[in-house]
Design a protein around this nucleic acid. Structure first.
Lengths: 228, 228
DNA sequence: ATATTGAATTATGAATTCATAATTAGGTCA
DNA sequence: TGACCTAATTATGAATTCATAATTCAATAT
């Protein structure tokens, strides 16, 4: 989980994250990027060697990641990368949707014109990438839109909870390619999302984001099933 | 955070939780019960002595608790029990409310008649305790109602997220006594909650739970402000 | 050839040790 | 007395060590 806490005592004290925090980040990245893939064992020793740390901070990091649901710890058998199941996906998406809905609602109360501009820009870029059928770039612009909205909600706890859940499904989400039809619909949905945001219609934006995510769920679920 | 994962390989394998897991539980309890109180330093050495463990599993537990927001780790200065601020309270409650709303909605789809009975029973007990102005017992019955609804939603991820956030505000929630008027209103709200549940009106139940929690927020916030 | 046993190997969980940073205590000087 | 500096003490972060559990692999029996 991402910590909500920022606890530097002096305003600009030198932030030297402890080893385990650094490791949590790094290992997370390895998982999301697929270097460490679902269902496989975490090569503790290797990772220690690779990162040049001892087992102590490495194991601290593994404990944190396990508490956050990224890994599972099998007693005396080590840490394993959690394979996301259809069941878990079906659990995570509604929760994520509820959090996004809240984010949308709050964002409309707090968002600055500059932030709306950011969303607009990312939206235009996304459209461009859609025209070019550039999935990777589309995905990135899309992510940015949701990120700006989430941050605009001005609720660090909400951001932390969302990120924690988001990470668990991020890889599946990235790999599950939308069909042509669904992709088109997604773009249309984003048009409405942008509009609701511009008009600061919080409740409506919340609903749209929720629906958008639930639709995405359909795609990801199908992909996961196809993976056997 | 609570882990969502259950990973026993054989059906009824002997569950021997690792030390750090056990410690996470125990320390959590110490915090919620107020033995370790907000703003104070965690006496690492003492706790090790008390629980008869070495620093290694203790520190693993502290890392997990910090990741979950219960503690903050100050580099080279140890772990401190996070003091909940009005700002954090204002962040946590809306998220909790959104999660409860979802839980209510899902619960109406999945809840069994037996579970509704459980809620009814707890509700009656709660009324009795209200009559007697027995705050502690009221609080407990109240907690049980919300717990049954949450579990009835049948979404382990949702339960885990809710519990994680709930713990952070649980102590404040417990200590903040409602005024006579608010208490009465809370009871009335619970009547409506029970009714919506019995009629399986998911959307309505969600709204009621959300509103109920937001009202509770008012009480807790005021209490926290009064604490200076 | 396959299944089974048991020793050798390896990995894990936890205690201990060690280097370094922070805190405390004691002493000096204004 | 009280502020300031330094040495001693203590606590922290991380590496290492150690006991035990799991796994591997060769040898044997079926």
């Amino acid at each position: 989980m991402d910590s909500v806490l920022e606890s530097s005592r002096s305003p600009s004290s030198i932030v030297r994250p402890s080893l385990h925090e650094e490791l949590v980040e790094r290992i997370q990245t390895l998982i999301v990027e697929g270097t460490l893939h679902a269902g496989t064992k975490i090569p503790e020793k290797e990772l220690c060697l690779q990162f040049g740390v001892s087992r102590t901070p490495m194991r601290e990091a593994l404990k944190v990641l396990a508490a956050d649901g990224m890994l599972s710890l099998e007693p005396n058998r080590g840490a394993w990368v959690r394979a996301i199941t259809v069941e878990e996906l079906a659990e995570v998406f509604p929760v994520l949707a509820a959090l996004e809905a809240l984010a949308g609602d709050l964002a409309c109360q707090n968002i600055s014109d500059e932030e709306v501009d950011e969303v607009r820009t990312a939206h235009s870029e996304m459209l461009q990438h859609y025209q070019n059928r550039d999935r990777a770039a589309y995905f990135q612009a899309n992510q940015r839109i949701h990120e700006v909205i989430l941050n605009a909600a001005g609720n660090a706890t909400l951001v932390a909870q969302h990120r924690s859940l988001s990470k668990r499904v991020q890889r599946a989400r990235y790999l599950a390619n939308m069909g042509e039809e669904r992709w088109h619909d997604a773009v249309v949905e984003h048009e409405h999302i942008l509009q609701a945001l511009e008009e600061r219609q919080g409740s409506k934006l919340g609903d749209l984001l929720k629906q958008h995510l639930e639709n995405k769920f359909g795609t990801v679920q199908q992909w996961l099933i196809d993976q056997t």
